[in-house]
Design a protein around this nucleic acid. Structure first.
Length: 438
RNA sequence: CUGGCCGUAGCUCAGCUGGUCAGAGCGCCGCGUUGUGGUCGCGGAUGUCGGGGGUUCGAAUCCCCUCGGUCAGCCCA
């Protein structure tokens, strides 16, 4: 990249075809999975009043620092959404829909932070939320859908990590116990983790430093400090997942930074991706968030899933097979160039995916373009065809043989439609450009 | 915000103890007789070596700054 006057801002990226086709497939897989379960699409603004995203909690300072916030021309404090949940909850509070409210979203999310493997300043998430029910069966449904989504994508090597945060009261008690434990062995913790003991002791548990890991190996687990109510809730979730046949691993160190998180917390982690931030789908119950945003006490649960990270995991498992063909038919015009336009328009109206060359290319160049397009057939029109009132249908892939037909113009659409319908079930690799005819 | 590594044609990279060092492969374009792609052969175009400054007779090669990429901390999708 010698020099381009402008380039995409740091931490953002352009996704060009054909790579973008993977996005289309992923979005389609998600929409299909959640709509089947009765979730509706929520479209909400990509920015909100800053306060919607600002919480008082352990991690508030860090969150604020990573926020893309600014003052608009009316003097309002605005922030680009850093994640999906807050906007959904704000919309819930504003419109007061009937409970349980089950919605999904697909959105960009912005965080002003340094770029790293699987982390960007603008990334994209799909996710869902259920507001208005505290039933542990909802937890099971939400986790199941997350799981099913990854299955639908073709991901197989994924681990479900599960934990509970208990209620707010449970956590206050637990944090005291934990802090006492950590204080007793603060000297064994990694230098960088010591200051966390006072401010957010639970964060010490998910430190990646080996000294800290070793020193906290037998740290008290929140699961042992739950109220009966919390323990029961968690138990029902585990039983429900078992009944659904979804394997999970208890992860006592899996914690969330915000106070509004309660009960079930979970993450889905691809086992083939070896990077510091591998989680491709994460979520949990947040029974305090609606109230924080000015609504009535309302339980909620949901998850968000990062598209870029999902795609990294998909690549690790190689779930997106060979390249796909952009079109099925390519029109080659060797007359004065006046026939390609009307002919492609006619075919497209008939539902046939087709393309053509521009710029009055020679036949050789047009055939080359036809091959590159991935089309399985070229439709050739020249002086000879004009005279006969036909078009030549020439197969471009080995699977269709070498024989080319002169087809009457009136029969062309029907001929092609039949040809393409017959080839549909065959796998895509037979239409890979440039790999046939030995 | 802190630190490591990196930045040469569209892509992947070689060159980097300063002096034919501006290159390779792929891709792209054209040609191989008049209308047939993918294979093969021949030919061609493209880079102020990320940007700026400095050292030097001379820098893609050394130094500084800056921008960008990448990985890690932190945080999280």
């Amino acid at each position: 990249m010698a020099r381009a006057k402008f380039q995409a801002p740091k931490g953002t990226q352009d996704v060009l075809p054909p790579t973008s086709a993977r996005w289309e497939r992923l979005l389609a897989a998600f929409a299909q999975t959640v709509e089947r379960a009765g979730y509706g699409l929520l479209q909400s603004p990509m920015f909100e009043e800053l306060a919607v995203f600002q919480r008082e909690s352990e991690g508030a300072d860090a969150v604020r620092k990573e926020m893309y916030d600014f003052e608009d021309k009316g003097g309002r404090r605005i922030a680009l959404r850093p994640e999906g949940t807050a906007s959904v909850v704000r919309a819930f509070v504003q419109h007061q829909p009937a409970s349980p409210w089950k919605v999904w979203y697909a959105t960009p999310a912005f965080r002003y932070e340094n770029v790293q493997a699987g982390r960007y300043r603008q990334h994209h998430q799909v996710g869902l939320e259920v507001l208005g029910s505290a039933d542990p069966d909802v937890d099971v449904e939400v986790i199941t859908i997350g799981w099913e989504f990854l299955q639908a994508l073709g991901l197989r090597k994924v681990e479900l990590l599960l934990n509970t945060m208990g209620t707010a009261e449970d956590r206050v008690r637990y944090v005291e116990v934990l802090r006492t434990f950590l204080q007793a062995r603060i000297g064994d913790l990694a230098e960088e983790d010591r200051e966390k003991v006072e401010r957010h002791p639970m964060r010490v548990l998910d430190s990646k430093r080996t000294e800290t890991r070793r020193a906290t190996a037998d740290a008290p687990a929140i699961a042992d400090h739950l109220s009966d109510e919390s323990a029961q809730h968690f138990e029902q979730v585990k039983v429900g997942l078992g009944a659904a046949g979804i394997p999970f691993v208890l992860a006592p160190r899996l914690v969330r930074g915000f106070d509004y998180y309660t009960h079930t917390t979970f993450e889905l982690v691809p086992s083939l991706v070896d990077s510091a931030q591998a989680t491709i789908l994460g979520g949990g119950r947040y029974d305090g968030l609606v109230e924080e945003l000015g609504g009535p006490p309302t339980p909620g649960i949901g998850f968000g899933s990062g598209i870029e990270r999902l795609l990294i995991a998909c690549d690790a498992e190689d779930v997106f097979a060979g390249p796909t063909a952009r079109v099925d038919v390519f029109v080659v015009d060797v007359t004065d160039g006046s026939h390609a336009g009307p002919l492609t328009a006619e075919l497209r109206r008939a539902g046939i995916r087709c393309d053509r060359a521009f710029d009055r290319k020679g036949m050789r160049a047009q055939m080359k373009a036809a091959d590159r397009s991935g089309a399985s057939h070229a439709v050739i029109v020249g002086a000879q065809e004009l005279a006969d009132g036909t078009a030549t249908v020439r197969p471009l892939r080995a699977a269709f043989g070498e024989h080319q037909d002169a087809v009457a113009r009136a029969d062309l659409v029907a001929h092609l439609t039949a040809l393409l319908a017959a080839s549909r079930p065959t796998d895509l690799s037979t239409t890979t450009p440039g790999k046939d005819h030995s």
